[in-house]
Amino acid sequence: MKKTNIALASKRTAVWRSLLLQYGGLLLALLLLMVAFSLKTDHFLSLTTLRTISNQIPYAVLLAVGMTCVMIVGGIDLSVGSVMFVAAALAGKLVLGGQPLWLACAVILLTGLVYGAVNALFITRLRVIPFIVTLAMLSILRGLAYTFTDAAVQNAHNIEAFRAIGIGFIAQLPVVGRVPWPVVITAVIFAVFAVILTRTTLGRYIYAVGGNPRAAALSGVRVYGVKTLAFVITAVLAALSAFILIARMNSGQNNAGFGFELQVIGAVLLGGASLAGGQGTLVGTLLAVLLLGTLNNGIILLGINSHWQVAVNGFAILIAVFLDARRRRALGQD
């Protein structure tokens, strides 16, 4: 037989080239935006702006990490915003009622777990499509939460216990200065999931199930288990991001998490995931979140009507879908 000798094929350069092909566009767009904004405004690249962004980014990243997992597995989760809201309301209520912070934290993570499991149950066992299940969940959760919090919690500000986390910093680091806790937590979680997705059997199975569930099942993959896990991960991360959000805002907010699901889905799509499943990476997702974050911030700094922020997300989804379609066309897959 012919010798392909594929293992030796110029490994390093090939890796870099494919990385550049994959993320080059996003990276370039991000850099261009930053340069453009810093030319237009005097203080875009100031430390304050970076702080502002790094304040806003963490929960978006956490949500996006979960959403990336769910979308790779071929699903979608429209209920993350509501999960956030419920978690935030619940935490506020508990802490106000005099419960310790750790208990509140444990309770809301558990809520996330249960929601994820319920979503997964409908999707795997009852075979309802994810879009419908999580759309229903979106309304149900939000409605329930409104009812049982009866607006009391949301107006309680300055809960002392949250402050430590919300605006606390970990010790002084060289160069970057003080790093906020939310950033640290988010970075750790991002890294953990990046490793899971690329280096572990679980990650591989997530991609395989999303790419072709039947083939995965016939190869011995626990398809239901993997799907369930993906939905649970997403809900738990949504709950966790709620925790960070209320900690920063220092209040349980009435509209916490409202409309987040679409922002996050937009970012994940822009980052290279596909509604068909089996595709997407956390690096792509992160770049897309940063891109949209920068864009939103720039809009504010430039003094443009902030309603444009809402529209920007819609554009992001359209662009992502357009790029995906064009790539498919070029490869003759239609």
Binding site: Y207, N212, A215, A216
Partner: peptide, 15 residues
Amino acid sequence: DGLVLPLSVRANMTL
């Protein structure tokens, strides 16, 4: 029933 189209040759092979 066989191919996981978006995955690499290697990932398909070792699934």
